[in-house]
């Protein structure tokens, strides 16, 4: 990594890339999500049929990924806001990024059982 380039290839750039990728993914999910929720206006059966796919093990894995994306985007978004509005924000941006990553890891471990528990039970039998 070329020394002297302050931004390129370092934490600041990669957190920006991750923020952008997660933001775009969440937007696409939301589009589909409003469409599937709209099925409550069609019939209870139509809605329940589609929601059934949300309960399959494979989709549970996608839900875990969505939670990962939201949590990162939310926590890093707060960091971006702190960098912009807090007078000492720019100085602590790197420490704040590692705080974000730390909280994110803890929350993702906490989400393992609630989000994936039922999928594991289904795949490996009660």
């Amino acid at each position: 990594m070329p020394a002297g380039t302050l931004y390129r290839g370092r934490e600041g750039m990669w957190s920006w890339v991750a923020h952008r990728v997660t933001g775009v993914l969440i937007f696409f999910f939301l589009f589909v999500h409003v469409l599937d929720t709209a099925l409550v206006r069609v019939s209870p059966e139509a809605y329940d049929d589609v929601v059934a796919t949300y309960k399959t093990p494979l989709v549970a894995l996608l839900e875990y990924g969505l939670v990962a994306a939201i949590l990162f985007h939310a926590l890093n978004g707060l960091r971006v806001i702190a960098v912009d509005f807090w007078s000492k924000g720019p100085r602590y941006q790197k420490q704040m990024l590692w705080t974000v990553v730390g909280i994110w890891v803890v929350l993702m471990v906490g989400a393992l059982y609630p989000v994936l528990g039922h999928a594991v039970r289904e795949v490996f039998g009660s």
Binding site: T37, V40, P44, Y47, D48, V51, Y54, K55, A60, E63, V67, A111, P114, V115, G117, H118
Partner: peptide
């Protein structure tokens, strides 16, 4: 939606 009260399993028309 995903954690409390049984997670996704409880979601359905009646829940909404």
């Amino acid at each position: 939606q995903l954690v409390l009260d049984g997670g996704v399993s409880k979601i359905g028309f009646a829940f909404v």
